[in-house]
C-alpha cells in the first residue's frame, strides 16, 4: 500500500492497487466544526480530478468535498451518512468518504505528502 497523499482542498487519499480511498483531513474537520450532514457520490458514477464529489455540512455552513483524482466510484461509506459525527471522531481512518477505481496513476504525483500538507495546512489557517 502506498503512502497517504493530501490535496490543497484538505482531502486525503490512500492508494491500494488501483483503488483509492478518499476522505477529509483532521485539519479540515477542525476548521468545519461539528459535522452534521454528509452527502457522497453515487456508486458507479465517474468523478473528475478536482471536481465535487460530495458535501459536508457543519452547524454553520455547507462545504463541497472534492476528489483529488479521477475515477469510478466503487464504494461509499454509508456509516458517515447515517452518523456524520463519526467524521469528527475518526476522519483519517474509519470515516473515509468513497473509494475510486482510478484512471490515471500519475494524478497522484500532483498531491502533497504528509510533511508538505501539514506545512500547507498550518500556513493557510494562520
Amino acid at each position: 500500500m502506498s503512502e497517504v497523499k493530501y490535496s490543497k482542498e484538505h482531502e486525503w487519499i490512500k492508494l491500494d492497487g488501483d483503488v483509492a480511498t478518499i476522505g477529509i483531513t483532521k485539519h479540515a474537520t477542525e476548521m468545519l466544526g461539528d459535522i452534521v450532514f454528509a452527502e457522497l457520490p453515487e456508486k458507479g458514477s465517474n468523478v473528475e480530478k478536482d471536481g465535487t464529489a460530495g458535501v459536508v455540512e457543519s452547524t454553520k455552513a455547507a462545504s463541497d468535498v472534492y476528489t483529488p483524482v479521477s475515477g469510478e466510484v466503487v464504494d461509499t461509506n454509508q456509516a458517515i451518512v447515517d452518523d456524520p459525527s463519526k467524521i469528527n471522531q475518526d476522519p483519517e481512518n474509519s470515516a473515509w468518504f468513497f473509494k475510486l477505481k482510478i484512471k490515471d496513476q500519475s494524478e497522484m504525483d500532483t498531491l502533497m505528502n504528509k510533511e508538505d500538507y501539514d506545512k500547507f495546512a498550518k500556513e493557510t489557517s494562520a
Binding site: 466544526g33 461539528d34 452534521v36 457543519s58 452547524t59 454553520k60 459525527s85
Partner: peptide, 12 residues
C-alpha cells in the same frame, strides 16, 4: 465568539 473549544453541538 462564534464558539469555544467544545464546539457548537456540545455548547448547545
Amino acid at each position: 465568539p462564534i464558539q469555544y473549544a467544545e464546539g457548537i453541538v456540545e455548547e448547545h
